[in-house]
């Protein structure tokens, strides 16, 4: 419950304060957000499986974000940033879908 409150609070603060992202960070933010979403879905699935561990969650969350940003950064340096971004988004999207399917099976039994 507190976790959900944290999410809501983050969205509200982001909308209200309109923070400015450093220009150098901007290309990595969308990828980082998608990676974090993947970690969150994974955590939710783990919760429903009864194997949720906060340490695992923190590590997976941070490493997802960092690795995703790193891949995009590397792609930018190699001149294939756009393609790598697409690849990362596709992979993370697939993972999110499979996690969502597991969650669905838990919640709806189907």
């Amino acid at each position: 419950m507190i976790a959900v409150l944290g999410l809501v609070l983050g969205v509200v603060i982001g909308v209200v304060t309109r923070p400015v992202v450093p220009t150098g960070m901007e290309p990595y933010l969308p990828i980082a957000v998608v990676a974090a979403l993947d970690a969150v879905f994974g955590g939710l699935r783990a919760t429903l499986d009864g194997v949720f561990d906060d340490k695992v969650f923190v590590v997976s969350f941070l490493s997802n974000v960092v690795v995703a940003a790193l891949i995009v950064f590397l792609g930018d340096k190699l001149g294939v940033g756009a393609q790598l971004s697409t690849g990362v988004v596709v992979v993370l999207g697939i993972r999110i879908f499979s996690n969502a399917a597991a969650i669905r099976r838990h919640v709806f039994g189907a």
């Binding site: 419950m1 507190i2 976790a3 959900v4 409150l5 944290g6 999410l7 809501v8 609070l9 983050g10 969205v11 509200v12 603060i13 982001g14 909308v15 309109r18 923070p19 992202v21 901007e26 933010l29 969308p30 980082a32 957000v33 974090a36 979403l37 970690a39 969150v40 955590g43 949720f52 561990d53 906060d54 969650f57 923190v58 969350f61």
Partner: peptide, 30 residues
């Protein structure tokens, strides 16, 4: 979800989700 428990796991998850929400809002706005 209920009742809210102020366990360490919950707090950590809340902090990370807060960051996620922040990023989401910023990105959507941008």
């Amino acid at each position: 979800l209920w009742p809210p428990r102020a366990s360490r796991g919950q707090l950590v998850a809340a902090v990370l989700l807060f960051v996620l929400g922040l990023g989401l809002a910023i990105q959507v706005r941008a």
